[in-house]
Each structure stands twice: as C-alpha cells, then as structure tokens.
Design a protein around this nucleic acid. Structure first.
Lengths: 224, 224
DNA sequence: CCTTAATTTAAGGTTTACCTTATAATAATC
DNA sequence: GATTATTATAAGGTAAACCTTAAATTAAGG
C-alpha cells in the first residue's frame, strides 16, 4: 500500500490542453493555455518550465510553446484513454453522452497501457468518442478528422452531425435538448444577416443556434 | 476545465485502511495504520487530526482510532468502488485476478455514485470481488464474510477456497502459480510440527505453504 | 513504583501546484 | 523610435501530504 500524491495528473491536463490548442495554432500562447485551464498565466509558466525540463514541451520565449515528440505521444495517450473511457461510459454503462466528459477526465489518469488496450479491445476498437472525436491509435497517431464546420454550410444544404465539440455538460445538454446529436441530419434553413445565428431544421422542428455554438459542430454534407 | 489537485485521494486510502484494520480490532493503533500505509506514524497522526476535524474518525489518545458512522459509510463506499472495479477488470477486460488490485486502487477514487451504480448494474450486482471479498452494498452495509481460516483446518479435511486476502501482486501470482485460486478445492495433507507449514493437495499436486501465507486464505470446509 | 515502550506534540523541511502583486523584458504597432 | 500590450521573472504566500529529529506524555509490565 502507498499513498503518495499523484503528480502526473496536472501535467497530463496540460498536455491535453496544449495538444488541443496546438491543432489550430502551431505555437500555443501560454496565456491561451492558462485561460483554457482556468489558471493564472504565472502558474502556467511555472508548470511549463517543469515540463520543459522533462522534455515534454518546447518553449520559445515570448512566442509560445509546442509539444515535443515525447509530449505529443503522451498527450495522445491521455486523449486515447479519455475517449475510450467515454465510450465505455456510454456504450457499457449507458450514461448519456452529454455527461461522460467529466467522469472520463477522472478515469483518464488511472490506467496503464495494459488496461487501456484491454478496454479498447472490449469496446471493439472504436474509432470515435461519443462526441465524434477521433480516438488516437495505440501507436500514437491521431486519425484525421472528417467533415466541415457547420458555419460553412449555406442555406438549403443538408448535412449529418459528425462532431459536437464542447466539453461543458450544460452546453451539451442544451444542444441535446434541441435534438442535436451525433448522426442527426439537419438542414440549414436560414443564416441571419451579417453571418448571424443559423436556423436549422432538425427532424420536424426548427432550431436557432448562435454562431459561437455552430462553430463547435462539425458536419458531413449530404446530398438532398 | 480545471486542474486543482485531488485531495480526496489520501483520506480515502486512510479510510480503507482503518476499516480493514478495524475488522479485527475495535481500536486501531495509529502505528498499525502507519505501517499499513507505509508512512511515518507522525504523518499518520497529522492526517488523523485532519480527519477527526472532518468527523471521519474518532481518536482516543494513546489508545487508537475508530471510524465514525460517517467515516464508515465513506470507507465502505470506497471499498465498494474498489471491488466493483476489480470485478470489471477481470470480468469485462479479462485481466488476471492477481493483478487487478493496483489498477482498482487508481480507479476507486474516480467515480461518483452515478457511475458506481451503473457499473454495479452492468456487472450484474456481483456480491464478491475477484479475491472473494464481499462487496459492500450501495446502502453501506458490508455483508458478513463466510468461511473459516485455512489455519483452522486439520489434516485430512477438505475445503473450497473462498477468499484470498493478500493485495500484493507478487504474492498473489505466487499463490496462483501453485494452483491456488477462488473456488479451488484442496485437502490438508499435513501440518508440520509446532503448527508449521501446511502441505496441501490441490488438484493433482502437492503444495507447501507457510503459516503466514495460509492465514491469508479463507476456506469453506466440504465433506469428503 | 519505576522503567521501558508506545504515543503524541513540536519544530522545521520538502514537493507539487496553485495564488497575487510587481517589475522587467520583449514584440508589435502607431 | 516611443508607446502599448503581451510575456516573463521575481518575490512571497497558501494548502495538502509527506518527511525527520527531538522532546514530552502516557500506558503497561516487571
């Protein structure tokens, strides 16, 4: 038996965040990272220094940070565990997909490769998490995401929901309550002037969602 | 997103230990607790103070400690989660029972009641962990253990293995490699003089195990 | 009763991961 | 080139859990 405080947890959160933020920008600003993790930039800088000394990230002062290959591998391992646990929670335990993120955040730090791969096997090697995000492979590769942003659709176009990005349960429940879910087919009815809120047709109802929200949804256009 | 260090982990380990040690003795010596957790008695005392202020344990100076009702409930909740995860790891992921304890130790801290009960349901509300220990109920009751200690058997008696207590993987693999496993039937062939090592007949082989080891095994006598 | 052993308290230290406030350095823009 | 905003560093603090060493207290046995 041993107690010892788990020290890998925080760095793993950082790795995940840096990876995610790094998908859009090559160099991630520490201030952006701090905001994403809801911590002060000073604390983030401190931690980055520790992670630099562990060769997990590369820091270009006044420019930003970037994962090293080692850091990238670790980040993908954490993301893999996270998304596999999410699948487990929905597929095996029947929890609603809107609510599995937070639990998976706890579980993701507690499972070595042996358990992770056994879990993946049990789940039938799923390729996507319940929100539609691709699950990194055991070899540390992130499959290319498919689809386009909902914002890119023009009125009249139809599409199938591929990814619902937000991690916040409240937001997801909001979207879910309006019929938005993975695989659902929708049609853009109208875009308010000046690139404003979208009016969508989902099933037999009309739903209006703001630009902010719409940008978090990835879709696959389908021919009418 | 939030980082913040998980502070419930250590107290939960203490609760588990105190519960386990409290099964044999009403009052648990802090030194015994410290030894069980591999920490210094001074550190243990410190933590006990914190737990007393949270009304989890009762401390009678120079005598020992005891769980309060609140502490007992929490301890049983942790043990329930632990044993359910163990069952999950063996039953669903196919990991060997000798090796699931450590992983379960990580998972036990990461699951609220919702997840725990969904897990219990998925597993079919098992009543015992893979080592034969009873799983506390969701209501916070610990089922009475059945069986007697292997030490109590006399030569010639036959019995079925009910519980294999040790948590150490090495020890468990040692026992496993000699054919000892839950449900296995054995017969006591001989007890060395002065209450010494036992020679057991398991299947078609003879196995000698020391008193220490034997005391960790609970059996159910079966008529010949 | 007195000594020994166990227990507790005190004092000071460590690590991790956070915080704030303030100053210094750099980048970007006017 | 000077100003502004961002970024970094410095300094000092907090909290949880651990550590050691040393002194004080209490229990228990001869």
């Amino acid at each position: 038996m041993s107690v010892k405080t788990r020290s890998k947890e925080s760095p793993e959160m950082y790795l995940k965040s840096i990876y995610q933020l790094g998908e859009t920008d090559d160099l991630v600003a520490i201030s952006a990272l701090a905001a994403h993790l809801s911590i002060s930039p000073v604390s983030a800088t401190e931690m980055i220094h520790r992670m630099v000394s562990r060769k997990l990230v590369q820091h270009i002062p006044y420019k930003g940070i970037r994962l090293t290959e080692k850091g990238r591998k670790q980040a993908l391992a954490v993301i893999r565990r996270h998304r596999l646990w999410e699948r487990f929670l929905t597929d095996r335990l029947g929890l609603p997909w809107e609510r599995v993120h937070d639990v998976a955040c706890q579980l993701e730090h507690a499972a070595g490769p042996e358990v992770t791969e056994a879990l993946a096997a049990d789940l039938g090697y799923p390729r996507k998490c319940p929100h539609g995000n691709p699950i990194p492979t055991a070899e540390g590769e992130m499959p290319d995401p498919e689809g386009i942003n909902l914002l890119e659709l023009t009125p009249g176009e139809m599409a199938r929901v591929e990814v619902i990005q937000p991690e916040d349960t409240e937001i997801l429940e909001h979207l879910s309550s309006r019929g938005l879910a993975l695989g659902v087919e929708l049609q853009v009815i109208e875009i308010a002037p000046f690139d404003g809120p979208r009016t969508l047709s989902i099933g037999d109802r009309k739903v209006v969602i703001g630009k902010e929200m719409a940008s978090c949804i990835t879709v696959q256009p389908v021919s009418i």
